[in-house]
Design a protein around this nucleic acid. Sequence first.
DNA 1: TATTGTTATACTCTATAACTATA
DNA 2: TATAGTTATAGAGTATAACAATA
Lengths: 155, 155
Amino acid sequence: MNRDNDLDELIGYQVQSASLRMLSGAQRVLEPHGLSVAKLTALMIIRSNPGCDQTALGRALNINRSSAMKLVNALVARHLVERRPGRDLRTNALHLVSDAEPRLAEIVAELRGSDAQMTARLTGPEQETLLRLLRKLGAAKGRRATSKAADAPPA
Amino acid sequence: MNRDNDLDELIGYQVQSASLRMLSGAQRVLEPHGLSVAKLTALMIIRSNPGCDQTALGRALNINRSSAMKLVNALVARHLVERRPGRDLRTNALHLVSDAEPRLAEIVAELRGSDAQMTARLTGPEQETLLRLLRKLGAAKGRRATSKAADAPPA
DNA sequence: TATTGTTATACTCTATAACTATA
DNA sequence: TATAGTTATAGAGTATAACAATA
């Protein structure tokens, strides 16, 4: 197949292509654990913000309350997260369960291995440059990616 | 919200984050045209490979026959693509409709504008470097991203 | 009134499996 | 047998809208 393509010159398109390729590696690691990138990100956020509520988690993930609830349901079902009484009677306080921490560490280690494998084509300095440019591309300056989540205005 | 995150050091994670951010810009452009990134990519592939069949299109997009068919249905409904008789009686030959070319050109122009806007934070040389590294990251060497599409073995 | 969690419902994208016609 | 298209069905992820309890 001819892959000639007006889009190849767009950074957004190349980023998206690279993302899809690397995603497959991440999914190979995460699927056996019943996780996805979004779920793993949620776990990281909960770990860094113990006691946060579902709405705040949704805002951080750019999804709405309803979707955040489903995501938390899945993490609770996997015995990774628990809902404790929150700051008032409407609110849940999200916490990692006690043994989630080491499980998370193991998953991240596997992920690092997969990431290293998939970026082996680049030299060390190239990898550093790529990371720096990607971070610069995304460095928030008050603005956030627009989302359709009515319940999830900018964090 | 504290965004501390073990994953931020992973290239795959940064690529994915950047992809999600840039996707929102692309979607703003594509949605009014009833398109998505996958649909636009399909149009590019069909334009570069006039007469290709649906299964080949699916392979190129890493989706299976069934999904490729739905995608083509949507493009036909939008009067962008037509199915003509193929090389044998089982096969469709996919072609852009006659006026799709200028519509495509306009969409790509809009997309270029959106891309430029979203990468304005990087200098010109930085943009070139980023593009080069992303391409190097993805440069196929006989291998392809693994997919779950049973119908879509490597292209 | 506003907010949190929840439920019901729907849409998009993709997958698997089975069927039909053709090769 | 194998292949191309199709159909039916299902699952993941997300959205909107409405409701109850609480603030």
